[in-house]
Design a protein around this nucleic acid. Structure first.
Lengths: 213, 213, 213, 213
DNA sequence: GATGAATGAGTGTTCATTCAT
DNA sequence: GATGAATGAACACTCATTCAT
């Protein structure tokens, strides 16, 4: 997982560093935004709804975010950081490659179940903030790439273009999370689906002891 | 690929069958909607922009569609039907399983390049019309399932849950199309990416002549 | 009751006399208009709804009426003629003044129950067609005035300004019809209410055998 | 005349109590609405016209009223409260029953001349807000009923159904106000009309020193 | 730091009316 | 005589954003 450095000191839209009280208000707003965006989508969400959910006045919003699009982007960055942390922690616990692989997916699915906002918000980003959309996928892909390169070097995985494989794995995770978590309303992907995924991916990546062209 | 038959006779929102002139106007509006939605997204698109693009008056729109959401849904159905037809035609030409598989993907990517609206519109459907969103994916998945079942019966593909595999293939197609067509602005996926995809999927599905657990 | 002569030959908006078929269509439209205006009020009513109720196409409407306001006015004239005929017939049957008086009111209430459109439409006329509104009341008042003058001459009713008395009687009829027919949904005014009305009016008009200032 | 107590604290549509500034704006809007509704009627009136007349922006309207219908209803309540206060004050000054009676009517006619909106708005209420319409009449009738009951107990007026009599008096007031104030454009009902009204009502109610059945 | 009243451009939708067929 | 597709002006209402307090 790459160590992308993100703004450590949260600031207001004018760049001023926030007081302790200010940080609390900002966090309340960001949490409210996650909830409202997740429930209603970007366009149905309104600043009033967000500020009401956060328990502050309308004007207060603009003390912390430059615009509606600005919260959206900060939220994407925030969710992206958290999902990547969850995935790398999930993967870290495993011993064999397969265990790590499954650990990462499982963590991703867990995060999806707990933060449906991730999906729901990202899908809107296409028109709201294309840059955020790409950044989000690029960063997750980078995590896969890094892991794949290590696995290829150690021979656990057959050589190949890690970039392409990374995106395919991400595509699989995305659609399975959508189909078996978001749509079904469950908080985890059924075991047999996970098993099928695992079998497909393991074969696809091949590795030691296998003969292939 | 299943031949799902949909409403042959296009009607107005009141259910009345359209005259020849009416059909022409409806088509102009639908094409304009595809363009405008694709360029601006659902929310930035407006009825005025659509009717201007179609060269008709605002009121005319409501002779053919009950609401903005209605065109959206009809458009999703329309694009869905066309992409499935393209995919099944692309697959039909192939001889071996691999050829058919690649043919289907290639057709999908070609359609994506020609109709970016498909992606851009579908991603908005989450909040605009969740039902349309599911319908779209379900129908495409159904096509994969059908093909997979046939391949499993003939032994070309190892037994497994065709539903899960179908969705994984769809996820791969989706994300590769997004990454290597929409974002790159190219009209086709580079050959080496296709090759990597093919290798990964072929192995993942396994089949005759392979030894596996 | 004065014999106000109204257009005998119904014509189209261009003044052309109607064929037999045309007359039938016009009548269907007028009846549809009465129903729709009565149910929805002038503004909620639309030409489409009227033509649908009449079973003709939209354009046909303008073959018989110059505008929406035009049907409205023709309808007021029509209802006014009918209610006055009903009232004078109701009054004609009575022998004594009181009987005739009650007969007229009873007929008015009956008409109200059968044609709620009368009330509902008239009340909208204030802004739609003030002239129609005045015409309606003036014509009904004229009927009362005529009857009162005759009764004054014969000594059945004390002398007084028949114009003022006519309007008061009309006001009583109006509000009682509204309160005890329209609002209650009954098809007749309860007997005790009628009795109280009768007592009040009889005294108010006074007449032979009474001493007054 | 009953002292019906209504909401003392004016609130916005969300129920929040208004600041001093807010109250001023609300009043400006309500006055503008009275004027515009009165001039143009409910349907021809538009929010733009009202806000322009009030000198505020369109959006401001919705800070104080939930909808066009909402202002309408609040205006009816407001006018109703004011006309009843005027009537009870007009009646309070009189000594004998007849004086009080005439005082009440005179006050009603004065209010009518000053606030034509009362009539013009109420007549539209039939379809805009039937509940407001009934409330308006019911409350005024209640005032008459109370006065009549007192007069009956003291023997000034013959026993009878006060409800029915109240509505008849209201009907008389309504139509006379319409005919001799609104339509004539005068600011008062001519004395001879008032005298005729008085004579008719006095007899109708009868009372001491009269012989009747 | 926080408030919330005010703004005004912008949207989806309706509907009386016209006119080529 | 009848049709119904097309028009386009008009309207109620929303909401991101500003700013005086």
């Amino acid at each position: 997982m790459t160590a992308v450095t993100e703004a450590a000191e949260p600031t207001g839209p004018d760049g001023r560093v926030l007081s302790a009280r200010g940080q609390r208000t900002r966090t309340r707003l960001l949490e409210a935004a996650e909830e409202v965006f997740s429930d209603l989508g970007y366009h149905e969400a309104s600043i009033v709804k967000i500020t009401e959910a956060a328990g502050v006045a309308q004007g207060t919003f603009y003390l912390y975010f430059a615009s509606k699009q600005d919260v959206f982007e900060q939220l994407v960055v925030d969710l992206n950081r958290r999902v990547r942390r969850a995935m790398s922690e999930g993967a870290a616990s495993g011993g064999t490659r397969t265990e790590r692989e499954l650990g990462g997916f499982a963590a991703f699915f867990r995060f999806t179940a707990e933060h449906p906002a991730l999906y729901r918000i990202i899908r809107q980003a296409e028109f709201v903030s294309p840059a955020s959309l790409q950044l989000h996928y690029d960063r997750i892909a980078a995590g896969y790439v890094e892991a794949l390169q290590a696995a290829m070097e150690s021979g656990e995985v057959d050589a190949g273009d890690p970039e392409v494989i990374a995106w395919m794995l991400m595509g699989i995770g995305e659609i399975v999370g959508m189909r078996w978590i978001l749509w079904s309303g469950h908080d985890h992907v059924p075991d047999d689906v996970l098993a099928e995924m695992s079998r497909f991916i393991t074969r696809g990546l091949a590795g030691p002891g296998r003969e292939h062209e």
